[in-house]
Amino acid sequence: MSFRFGVVVFPGSNCEQDVVYALDYLGYTADYVWHQDHSLAGCDAVILPGGFSYGDYLRCGAIARFSPIMEAVVRFAQDGGPIMGICNGFQVLTEAHLLPGALIRNKGLKFLCREVPLRVEQSVCQWLKPTTQTLRLPINHNEGNYRCDAATLKSLVDNCQVVLRYGAPDCAPGYVPERAPGYVPERASGYVPERASERVSERVAGGAPGSMPSSASDAAGLAGAAGTAEVAPNGALDNIAGICNREGNVFGLMPHPERVCDGISGNSDGIVFFETIAQRLCAV
């Protein structure tokens, strides 16, 4: 299996090393791509990492989308190449109109860094198989409040482009299903790093750590379409945490899967995205 990930570095990106570390840990090959480059030659999949591109003093991603590399990213997307935008990368993808909608300041106007339960929707996304049902991933953003007009939302839902929804009630910080203060890493004593060889679907089906705490699982009872009760901690429309384009190759999400790949914090739910796309790239 010979394929490469390209991780784009804008000035102010600050999660590019984490993404490369996670990919490296999982046994994949990844290279940094500088924002002033014009080519993605040699890349089989592209990741736009989190951070504060150009400081994000204007609308997040508004400057980054004009970086020279973005022309190549747009072409890559049009050619069907798989692209994942994480957090700031998601914001850049919306600014570049590779994904619809926009991400505005969080409800409550506070930066949010915590782990959240997510529901995986039936979608056309190439980065995530719907066999996985729930995930717990960390969010870390100031502008993650997804917005779009009603027609766009309808088309997102109708075309199975909603990939992830915030899936449990937004309990108070540290409340039962949330990570309590001083959370003890589940794997702290054993500390057996999971490798890419472990089948994610089996792992999730087998329970921890992919499964949700029981008190959060009643979120699965929430309706899945527009008009559901707001449970997104950032106020996102229809609890949207991640969407893809109609073809499913371009995917943007606010949570940070790269932070939960090596199990250091007792969670390895982030692996699923990278493994899914890797399997697809191998099959091609």
Partner: peptide, 12 residues
């Protein structure tokens, strides 16, 4: 929760 306490992937 207003601070990014996990970036760099090393917070145990």
């Amino acid at each position: 929760q207003q601070y990014d306490h996990q970036v760099m992937n090393n917070t145990v």
